[in-house]
């Protein structure tokens, strides 16, 4: 068995995962990032994206929205707005969110509103992608 490190994934509405983990792959703001036990101390921000972590040789997947990660050699903490398993994602709702955001982007909006809509669109697309990839 591979060396493990303690991983905590905490979303605003629940503690998503807390326990040992062998390998963690996340999307950071500048690309994918793989973390294993003994990683150098690191802090980075996370955009909406995919997250996967290996426990007992098995990969687990999740959709994560904005947050950040703090990596220490023996433990890592991920704090995010939301974190969902692929099977928890409501495809219909995500699809609706996507359509609504796309519809809104066609309207004239202030810059701020535009960014907000874009963020909403990103979130919806990310959820759809992950749900389609891992759960059918």
């Amino acid at each position: 068995m591979a060396k493990t490190f303690h991983l905590e994934i905490i979303a605003t509405d629940r503690v998503f995962y807390q326990g040992e983990c062998e390998h963690l792959v996340i999307t950071a703001i500048d690309g994918l990032l793989g973390i294993m036990a003994g990683h150098e101390p690191l802090v980075t921000a996370l955009p909406d994206g995919e997250l996967k972590y290996m426990v007992d040789g098995k990969w687990h997947y999740a959709a994560i929205s904005e947050g950040f990660i703090q990596v220490m050699p023996d433990n890592s903490v991920i704090l995010a707005d939301t974190c969902e398993l692929p099977e928890e994602i409501d495809i219909k709702r995500a699809e609706e969110d996507r359509q609504r955001a796309q519809e809104k982007l066609r309207q004239k909006q202030s810059i701020q509103e535009y960014y907000q809509t874009q963020a909403a669109l990103n979130r919806a697309m990310n959820r759809l992608k992950i749900s389609q990839k891992h759960f059918k």
Binding site: A28, I29, D30, L33, E40, P41, L42, V43, T44, A45, E66, G67, F68, Q70, V71, M72, L79, D81
Partner: peptide, 21 residues
């Protein structure tokens, strides 16, 4: 107490995301 962590891509960039969050 631990040594300075590294920030990707840069401390300023990370803080710009982290603080609003």
């Amino acid at each position: 107490k631990l040594p300075k962590a590294s920030f990707l891509p840069s401390p300023e960039e990370v803080m710009a995301h982290l603080i609003p969050d």
